[in-house]
Every structure is written in structure tokens, then in C-alpha cells.
Amino acid sequence: MIPFDYRRAQDPADAVTAVAERPGAAFLAGGTNLVDHLKLGVTAPDLLVDVSRLPLDGVESLPGGGLRIGAAVRNSDLAAHPVVRERYPMLSRALLSGASGQLRNAATTAGNLLQRTRCVYFQDVTTPCNKRDPGSGCSAIGGYTRYHAILGASEHCIAVHPSDMAVAMRALDADVIVLSQDGERRVPLADLHRLPGDAPHRDTVLDHADLITAVELPALPMARRSTYRKVRDRASYAFALVSVAAALELDDGMVGDVRLALGGVAHKPWRASTAEEHLRGAPATVETFRRAADAELAAAQPQPGNEFKVRMARNTIVAVLRELAGAHGMGGEHR
């Protein structure tokens, strides 16, 4: 591990200034991903600016029914928050399906959004990786692809974003509040994470000294009937092969409204907008769910070794929509 300086930020603006002044600086919050990367040599900041004690750990209801989640709220606290459990169950379930009890107690909301891919080549500094070492090549292409993308990848990178929480937040149309030296701005979560393109070293649109201070969820009454399903190689404590966050509103046997996002399939939380379009206004039947999933996955370009994820994603979408429709007493036809 390369030696680094340490500084405890006095307030959010102080944190931003401290990182802006040093090109090699990084923010430290829960540290569950960063400290691991320091040990692995994946990253080597020369200054850590500790934001973990800043007063950014509140969860407040917003006028109009939304929810503001402080950047430093621990994953475990957010999952257990009474308002999240009742009004945004998909978010609670997504958080609870991620990592372990110990890690959720340390990991923060903003840190969860900004965690790096678990691509084995990214984490192994002895192998080429365009994300870790731009221009060095992608070892995953033609390599071990089980945990890699089937949507939106590029010839430079096929890594996926590992967060469960972010998938639920993407389905919920969350906004991220970002502080920079120019002041505060609002970034839709939809625009926060990037597709790899020819610059896979950039996970997000954030600049060096941008500090996430909060995430805001809109009031979304339909989210009360929502869930998150994660398919993985172990029953617990493993990253997703495929995951689905969904909310479904039925109107007399028809899909009134729907929110659908996928995890484990792309470089960013993947909003299944095409599937949503197919679903809205259509009868809430398994046939509809299948057609919608197929329409979304028509663009899938799996790698040799992860072709199975296309069918897995399709089946998981259908299963989750059936489950939600079943809660309305619908969607059980055409088994």
C-alpha cells in the first residue's frame, strides 16, 4: 500500500476543497470497497479525506411525499428504516440482498452508488484492464464472463455495476444531490452511471471533487407494491448474476403502470424502458410479461460463457412480475 495522508473533513464544502486541491485525493466514507482496493493496489490515493463524520446521516420525508436519504446513511439503517420498508420495499429488499450484515453496517448510501465493479480482472493488478489501466486491454473479453454484461457493453469493457441498491433506486427514479466547488446540483440517478464506451475508467459522470451529499426518492405510491429479486450462485452474500427491481400497478386486469430495472447485466443499473412500454396498458398476463422481457432483451449481446444470463434475466423479469401481479390476484394464467 502506498503511503497516504489523512484529513478529517470539517464540513461538506471543506471536503470538496480538500479533494479538489489534490489530484491524487479520494473521499473516505465506510471504506468497505476503498480499503480493499488500497490493499489490492487497485487504487493508490495520496490523501484520504474522511467524510464519515459529516452530518449527512439523516433520512427525512420531503414535502410532497418523497424521501431524502443522507449520503452517509448506513446500508443497514436504510434497509431497516420504517418509511423505506413500508413505502419503498424494493429498496429495502435490494439493500438486504447485498453484502453481509457486517458490511451493511459500515457501507454508506453514496459509497454504495460509487462502489467499483467486482470484475475479477479489474481487481487483479497483474492482468490488463481498461477500467483500472486505460489502454491496457480487457482481460474479461474471451476470459471468465459469468459475472459480466449482456447489455450496453463495449469492446473496451464488459464489466457490470455491482450495486443492488442502485438498481432499486434506478427503478424509483431517484435523484442524486452533488456538491462541487461550483455549488450544489441535482443529477438524476439515470445519468449518474455511464456505459463503458471507450472510457471505461469512468464509472460515473462525477468529477474528481464532486461529493454526493444525498439521494432523493420521489413520492411513488405504486412503490408500496414493489420487490427486488436477486439470482446468484449462493443463497446469500454473493453478487448478482441477474437481479430485478419492479413495481407494478394493475387496473382491472391491465397493467396501469410499471417500473422495471435490472442489475448484474450492464455497466450501470439498467432501466428496462422497452419492457415498461410493452407492459403499460397491456393485459397483466404471463404472455405479456414474456413478450415485454423478450423485447427488452432483444438488444442483449452476451459473451461466450454468459449466454445463460439472457434467459435468466427473461425468466426473472417474468417471475417478479407474476409475483407482483399475484399479490393483486392476477397474472397466474398460462402457466
Partner: peptide, 11 residues
């Protein structure tokens, strides 16, 4: 409960 291997003592 936390894992102490991923917590920097200075923090």
C-alpha cells in the same frame, strides 16, 4: 458488528 480488516484505524 463490522469487519475490522476494512476499517482504517485513523478513521
Amino acid at each position: 458488528r463490522v469487519v475490522s480488516c476494512l476499517a482504517l484505524a485513523v478513521a
